[in-house]
């Protein structure tokens, strides 16, 4: 049985004054196995983010179902949903915008830990925070610093530590390295890969950078206008793309042509 199953998911934003109804996700079916890294590729506006919000249960589906280990998430009541949501955590593109500038790393991370555990004695909290920081390659001595005291790469590490705080089982990484320098990018990609391997995490990796997806993902889903147009093993999709849209994406990617030089 697959870990996460999306069956015929559709999200329609209803018509409002001045705009027509818009279907952002049109009957998407996907399944992710436990421990798998699935790359989701497509342009802005293709529905990638709406789909990830729907998986996070932040956006109700108009039609279809999302099953976590066979259990239908939309059938949960609000308390159960709050607990289930802890199993999914997100890492966003811009670590400058996604961290609260007025909270220390300790305060950010304890909130994430407590979401799962409830109240903990101070020593236990410190232990958890130190372990999280070490896991993402940060020195726990810096726990009382604020986000602005860290570099972009370190901030993204804090954001990843926060996502790991409630012991999630699925990580949704929404363009986690697009805002970073090349040399920092590789560090964060290595970190994400190690985390998936060591913690048995499943990951949905959303990106428009095919060279990164090629490296990190086991399988790739290509999305266009709210639909999955191609899905398959990463190597196969990127070397022998079947759908014209995938071919167009590959052609536009400069890094891949560089590989042939």
């Amino acid at each position: 049985m697959s870990f996460l199953q999306i069956q015929d998911a559709t999200v329609t934003f209803p018509a409002r004054r001045g705009s027509e109804a818009f279907t952002a996700v049109k009957g998407v079916s996907l399944s992710i196995a436990k421990g798998e890294i699935l790359g989701l590729v497509g342009e802005s506006g293709c529905g990638k983010s709406t789909l990830s919000r729907a998986i996070m249960q932040l956006q109700p589906l108009t039609a279809g179902r999302i099953l976590l280990e066979g259990g239908d998430l939309s059938k949960l009541d609000s308390h159960q949903l709050r607990m289930a949501r802890l199993n999914f955590q997100m890492v966003f593109q811009d670590p400058y915008a996604s961290l609260n500038p007025r909270r220390t790393v300790f305060s950010t991370l304890t909130e994430a830990v407590r979401a799962r555990t409830g109240k903990l004695p101070k020593e236990a909290l410190w232990e958890r925070v130190a372990a999280l920081m070490q896991r993402v390659g940060l020195n726990p001595d810096f726990a009382l610093k604020y986000p602005h005291e860290f570099s972009g790469g370190q901030r993204q590490r804090i954001a990843i530590a926060r996502a790991l705080g409630p012991d999630p089982r699925l990580l949704i990484a929404d363009e986690p390295v697009s805002a970073l320098d090349v040399s920092i990018q590789s560090q964060i990609i290595n970190l994400l890969l190690n985390l998936c391997r060591d913690l048995g995490l499943t990951m949905l990796f959303i990106s428009h950078d095919l060279s990164v997806v090629r490296y990190i993902a086991d399988r790739v889903a290509v999305m266009q206008n709210g639909q999955i147009v191609e899905l398959g093993e990463t190597g196969q999709v990127l070397t022998a793309p079947q759908h014209p849209y995938t071919q167009k994406l590959l052609e536009a990617a400069p890094a891949l042509r560089l590989a042939e030089v």
Binding site: S186, S211, R214, T234, L258
Partner: peptide
Amino acid sequence: QALMRSIPALQRKGEPLYTI
């Protein structure tokens, strides 16, 4: 050279990415 080596497109899958 280090910058070029850290481009993910040029790295074999499965091996850890080179970082400076």
